[in-house]
Structure formats: structure tokens, C-alpha cells
Simulated scan of single mutants.
Amino acid sequence: MKLIHLTDLHLVPAGAMLFGFDPAERMRKTIERINRDHADAELCVVTGDLTDEGDFASYELLREVLQEMRVPIRLLLGNHDSLTSYALSLASRAIGRALSSQSMRPRSGASSSSTPWWRVLGMAR
């Protein structure tokens, strides 16, 4: 069983930089590598901070970037994230079969995902 864990993406609105880097471009390259070398993974758990400031535009960008992921995704918000902005952007839009499932619904408090072989628990304040 293969599990991928990504954390602290700190995405910023499209075109913005964070400390001289474009977090979205780094995430795109990471997804390319996962799709190329690890598409057989059972799950990719992406934990917060998903965005740097919890703004709507950054969640729109996250939604766009994650559409390329071939591995099932589970997201957990972090302390920089905003459940309201997340829900407005990601959970309220139909963005395709893979992303409109349970995997992209808001996660706050405790959440879990499991198969017959493992269980991932997420705890957020």
C-alpha cells in the first residue's frame, strides 16, 4: 500500500509570490511527479495549511491545480485556512467526478478515511 502525504502548501492567489516562490507552480510540479512515478498510490493526504491567508482566490487556484491529480485526495484544513472560503470555492462547485466526491468536502474537526488495510485520522482545531 502506498500513501502520499503533502503538507503546508501555503498557496497564494494566481500570479502572487510567497517569499520569492510560486507555491502553485511547485504544487503543479509535485503533481506531475506523483502522476508520473506514484499513480499507483491508494491515497494522497494533503494537510494544511492549504493556503497562506485562507482567501477565496487561493482556494480557486487549489481547485484548479488539484484537478490534475490522478491519485484519490483527502484534504485537511490548517490554521491558515478558512472553512468559509474553502467551502465557497471547492465544495460548492462541480469540478469533475474525482473532485466532487467526499474527498474535496470541507474537513474541520476530526475526519477519517479508510480502506480494509488502513485508516487515516485528521484532527484540526
Results as ranks from 00 to 15, higher is better:
Met1Cys: 01
Leu3Asp: 04
Ile4Thr: 02
His5Asn: 05
Thr7Trp: 07
Asp8Gln: 00
His10Met: 08
Ala14Ile: 06
Ala14Pro: 06
Ala14His: 12
Ala16Gln: 15
Asp22Arg: 12
Pro23His: 05
Glu25Asp: 14
Arg26Asp: 15
Met27Ser: 06
Lys29Cys: 05
Lys29Glu: 09
Thr30Cys: 05
Ile31Glu: 02
Ile31Asp: 04
Glu32Phe: 10
Arg33Pro: 02
Ile34Ala: 09
Ile34Trp: 13
Asn35Cys: 03
His38Ser: 06
Ala39Val: 07
Ala39Lys: 03
Asp40Ile: 01
Ala41Val: 02
Glu42Phe: 02
Thr47Asn: 00
Thr47Asp: 01
Thr47Glu: 01
Gly48Asp: 02
Asp49His: 04
Leu50Cys: 02
Leu50Lys: 00
Thr51Gln: 01
Glu53Tyr: 15
Glu53Trp: 14
Gly54Leu: 00
Ser58Cys: 07
Glu60Thr: 07
Leu62His: 03
Leu62Trp: 03
Leu66Thr: 04
Val71Asp: 09
Ile73Thr: 04
Arg74Ala: 14
Arg74Gln: 15
Arg74Tyr: 14
Leu77Met: 03
Gly78Asn: 02
Asn79Lys: 01
Asn79Phe: 05
His80Thr: 06
Thr84Ser: 12
Thr84Asn: 11
Tyr86Asn: 00
Tyr86His: 00
Leu88Trp: 15
Ser89Trp: 10
Leu90Arg: 01
Leu90Phe: 04
Arg93Asn: 11
Ala94Phe: 15
Ala94Gly: 07
Ile95Ser: 13
Ile95His: 14
Gly96Lys: 14
Arg97Gly: 12
Ala98Val: 08
Ala98Tyr: 11
Leu99Met: 11
Leu99Asn: 06
Ser100Gly: 12
Gln102Gly: 08
Ser103Met: 11
Ser103Asn: 14
Pro106Gln: 06
Ser108Ile: 03
Gly109Phe: 04
Ala110Thr: 12
Ser111Tyr: 14
Ser111Thr: 13
Ser113Pro: 07
Ser113Thr: 14
Pro116His: 12
Trp117Ser: 13
Trp117His: 11
Arg119Asn: 07
Arg119Tyr: 04
Val120Thr: 11
Leu121Gly: 10
Gly122Asp: 02
Met123Cys: 06
Ala124Gln: 13
Ala124Val: 07
Arg125Pro: 13
Arg125His: 12
